[in-house]
Simulated assay, not measured.
Amino acid sequence: MPIDAAKALAAEPRSREIAWDHKDVQLYHLGIGAGRPATDPGELRYTLESRLHVLPAFATVAGSGSPGVISGLSMPGIEVDLARVLHGGQSLTLHRPIPVAGTATATGRIAAVYDKVKAAILVLRTEVTDADGPLWTGDAQIFVRGEGGWGGDRGPSTPLEPPAGDPDLTVERPTREDQALLYRLSGDWNPLHADPDFAKSAGFDRPILHGLCTYGMTLKAVVDTLLDGDVTRVCGYTTRFAGVVYPGETLRIRMWRQPGAVRVAVSAVREPDEAPVLTDTIVEHA
Rank of each mutant, 00 (worst) to 15 (best):
D4P: 00
K7H: 01
A8I: 00
A10H: 02
R14I: 06
I18Q: 06
D21Q: 04
D21F: 02
D24R: 01
Q26T: 15
Y28T: 10
T39C: 02
G42W: 05
G42F: 07
L48E: 05
V54I: 09
V54F: 03
P56Y: 12
F58K: 03
A59I: 08
A59V: 06
V61F: 08
A62C: 10
G63R: 01
S66E: 11
I70P: 00
G72V: 01
D81V: 11
H87D: 03
Q90F: 13
L92M: 07
T93R: 11
T93F: 01
P99E: 04
V100N: 07
A101S: 13
A101K: 08
T107V: 12
A112L: 05
Y114E: 15
Y114S: 04
D115W: 05
L122D: 08
L124V: 02
R125T: 14
R125Y: 04
T126K: 04
V128I: 14
T129A: 15
T129C: 08
T129G: 00
D132C: 00
D132T: 13
P134W: 10
P134V: 06
L135Y: 03
T137D: 07
A140N: 12
I142S: 06
G146Y: 14
W150E: 09
G152R: 06
G152L: 06
D153G: 13
D153Y: 02
T158P: 01
L160P: 05
E161T: 14
G165D: 14
P167A: 10
D168G: 14
T170M: 08
V171I: 15
R173H: 14
T175H: 11
D178W: 05
Q179M: 15
Q179N: 07
Y183H: 02
P191W: 06
P191R: 03
L192F: 08
H193M: 01
A194L: 02
D195Q: 02
D197Q: 08
G203A: 08
G211R: 03
L212C: 10
L212A: 10
C213Q: 00
M217S: 13
T218N: 10
L219A: 10
A221K: 09
V223I: 15
T225Y: 09
R233L: 15
V234W: 03
Y237Q: 06
T239D: 03
T239H: 09
A242H: 09
G243E: 09
G243P: 06
V244H: 12
Y246H: 11
P247W: 07
E249Q: 15
T250V: 15
L251V: 11
L251N: 04
R252W: 11
A261M: 12
R263G: 06
V266K: 10
A268I: 12
E271W: 00
P272D: 09
D273I: 11
T281V: 12
H285R: 08
